[in-house]
Amino acid sequence: MSPMLDMSAVRKTYSTGVVQVEALRGVDLSVDQGDYLAIMGPSGSGKSTLMHIIGCLDVPTSGTYLLDDTDVSKMTESQLAEVRNRKIGFVFQQFNLLSSLSALRNVELPLVYAGVPAATRKERALAALDRVGLADRVQHRPGELSGGQQQRVSVARALVTDPALLLADEPTGNLDSHSTEEILGLFAELNEAGRTIVVITHEFEVAEHAKRRVFIRDGLLATTDAVLGGVH
């Protein structure tokens, strides 16, 4: 079986005026179906760039990236939008919920862009909110929910399209320790049920929950054990 996510020799170069910045310098990464991977690295390591490319928010300068057997490295913006919609569920550090919409409407949003009819949309959004334990909060707006609850709404939003990959970018960065446990517990449950998860973080407490860890530094991936061993 081919991996869910397969990157080889991915490079990303940004040009800021005259200076060329090589954010990624040849990354090979493979994630199987049902895997739970933590990508760790300090700021400036190329962690965010890697997250953007995994999430199809940006395309590599060179190299290939197969997501669920689809080559996404040469896609146009519109095609990328469709891939993001169907294959990736995002969980952001800042939650990124729309404050004027109820939890239900926020969770429905990806389905709106997928063109799912209203009745099905509501049914699936309610199921996703139920899955994260917020069945009794569906009409609340983000401002009326705690940080942990807001992040659970965004996990529900990420799950509602049944994506190939759940991609979380510092998902616990804005949460207290109790809510962090809640979210990480939820991720573990989801992975248990077969969901593929990639978490980008700089916290070992978060990375420890994953099945596998890779470390990124200066735009290159290092083998997990060596890096962890080196730091510990």
């Binding site: 999430g55 928010l57 913006e77 519109s78 939008a81 469709e82 993001r84 919609n85 169907r86 995002f90 990124n96 729309l98 949003l109 990806p110 862009y113 997928a114 939003r157 399209t161």
Partner: peptide, 16 residues
């Protein structure tokens, strides 16, 4: 800008 970015991340095409 943030809202637009989020909508795009969730699958809104430039056309939408």
């Amino acid at each position: 800008v943030r809202e637009i970015g989020l909508r795009k991340a969730l699958g809104a095409t430039p056309g939408v």
